[in-house]
Simulated assay, not measured.
Amino acid sequence: MTVEVHPATADRFEDLATILAPKNPDTVACWCLTYRLSSRENRQLGAHERPEYVRRLCAQPIPPGVLAYRDGEVAGWAGVAPRSQLHAFATGARIPLLDDRPVWSVWCFRVRAGHRRQGTAQALLHGAVDFARAHGAPAIEGYPVDNQGRRIDAIMAYVGTRSMFEKAGFTKAADTAAVSAGTPRVLMRLELG
């Protein structure tokens, strides 16, 4: 099967909603905003305001991430943006700032059932790297779990795994104070030249 990765632009919003929207539209779901917004802003957005907020992000010159398509069907999502646009990473203490360069971050992977364990997440990571490079990023970071090859719950693996990032050419740059599913997260970085 062919996997193509495209920016999550306004014309692809419905595909993004297929990945991020909860089954019940009245449920407050993340919509990949938890790391982007301050806690206060995040709490203020209700169930119906979240998709509209993301729709506006998709219409901006730099969309909020990338979508994977397998044989034309939307299969997955990765959030990727300048780190400075992500409140939790720009101001938080759990993920260290290595320097003051305008690096980008890839922080979330969602792969639909039926498309898992087929290289979709890896394709999303490569697409995120290409997206950041095309927008002039000097480097890109990720903050995956360091699960040391142990199986991890798919839901809690939304940050990716260290081995996935290593396969894409990233190297460990620092330890972090963050955990996911009780597993430590590490800062992985790839220089883009």
Results as ranks from 00 to 15, higher is better:
residue 2 T to I: 12
residue 3 V to R: 01
residue 4 E to F: 10
residue 8 A to S: 09
residue 8 A to D: 02
residue 12 R to I: 00
residue 13 F to I: 03
residue 18 T to M: 07
residue 19 I to H: 00
residue 21 A to S: 13
residue 23 K to D: 14
residue 24 N to I: 01
residue 25 P to K: 08
residue 26 D to E: 14
residue 28 V to N: 03
residue 28 V to I: 12
residue 29 A to F: 10
residue 29 A to V: 11
residue 31 W to M: 11
residue 31 W to A: 11
residue 34 T to E: 14
residue 38 S to I: 06
residue 40 R to Q: 15
residue 41 E to V: 03
residue 43 R to T: 07
residue 44 Q to N: 13
residue 45 L to T: 06
residue 46 G to T: 05
residue 46 G to S: 01
residue 46 G to P: 01
residue 47 A to W: 05
residue 48 H to K: 13
residue 48 H to M: 01
residue 49 E to A: 15
residue 51 P to L: 08
residue 52 E to V: 01
residue 53 Y to V: 02
residue 55 R to Q: 11
residue 55 R to T: 05
residue 56 R to H: 11
residue 56 R to S: 14
residue 58 C to V: 01
residue 58 C to A: 11
residue 60 Q to N: 08
residue 63 P to L: 04
residue 63 P to R: 02
residue 64 P to V: 01
residue 64 P to E: 10
residue 64 P to W: 00
residue 65 G to K: 04
residue 67 L to G: 10
residue 68 A to E: 00
residue 68 A to T: 07
residue 69 Y to G: 06
residue 70 R to M: 11
residue 70 R to Y: 00
residue 70 R to E: 03
residue 71 D to P: 00
residue 75 A to T: 03
residue 76 G to Q: 02
residue 77 W to L: 07
residue 77 W to F: 08
residue 79 G to E: 13
residue 79 G to A: 15
residue 80 V to S: 09
residue 80 V to D: 05
residue 84 S to N: 02
residue 84 S to P: 03
residue 86 L to D: 05
residue 87 H to T: 08
residue 89 F to W: 12
residue 89 F to C: 11
residue 90 A to F: 01
residue 91 T to D: 07
residue 92 G to Q: 09
residue 93 A to L: 14
residue 93 A to T: 15
residue 97 L to Q: 15
residue 100 D to E: 14
residue 102 P to L: 09
residue 104 W to N: 03
residue 106 V to F: 03
residue 106 V to Q: 00
residue 108 C to A: 10
residue 108 C to G: 05
residue 109 F to M: 07
residue 110 R to E: 11
residue 115 H to N: 08
residue 116 R to A: 10
residue 118 Q to F: 10
residue 121 A to M: 07
residue 121 A to T: 06
residue 122 Q to I: 04
residue 123 A to L: 05
residue 125 L to A: 11
residue 127 G to H: 10
residue 128 A to S: 15
residue 131 F to H: 12
residue 136 G to I: 06
residue 136 G to F: 00
residue 137 A to L: 05
residue 139 A to S: 14
residue 140 I to W: 06
residue 140 I to F: 09
residue 141 E to L: 07
residue 143 Y to N: 14
residue 143 Y to R: 04
residue 144 P to M: 09
residue 145 V to M: 13
residue 147 N to G: 05
residue 149 G to E: 10
residue 152 I to K: 04
residue 153 D to L: 02
residue 157 A to F: 01
residue 157 A to L: 05
residue 157 A to D: 10
residue 162 R to A: 13
residue 164 M to A: 15
residue 166 E to P: 10
residue 167 K to I: 09
residue 167 K to R: 15
residue 170 F to Y: 10
residue 172 K to F: 00
residue 172 K to A: 14
residue 173 A to Y: 07
residue 173 A to V: 09
residue 178 A to G: 01
residue 180 S to N: 12
residue 180 S to K: 05
residue 180 S to L: 10
residue 180 S to C: 12
residue 181 A to G: 14
residue 183 T to K: 09
residue 183 T to H: 06
residue 185 R to K: 13
residue 187 L to I: 06
residue 187 L to M: 08
residue 187 L to D: 03
residue 188 M to F: 04
residue 190 L to H: 11
residue 192 L to E: 04
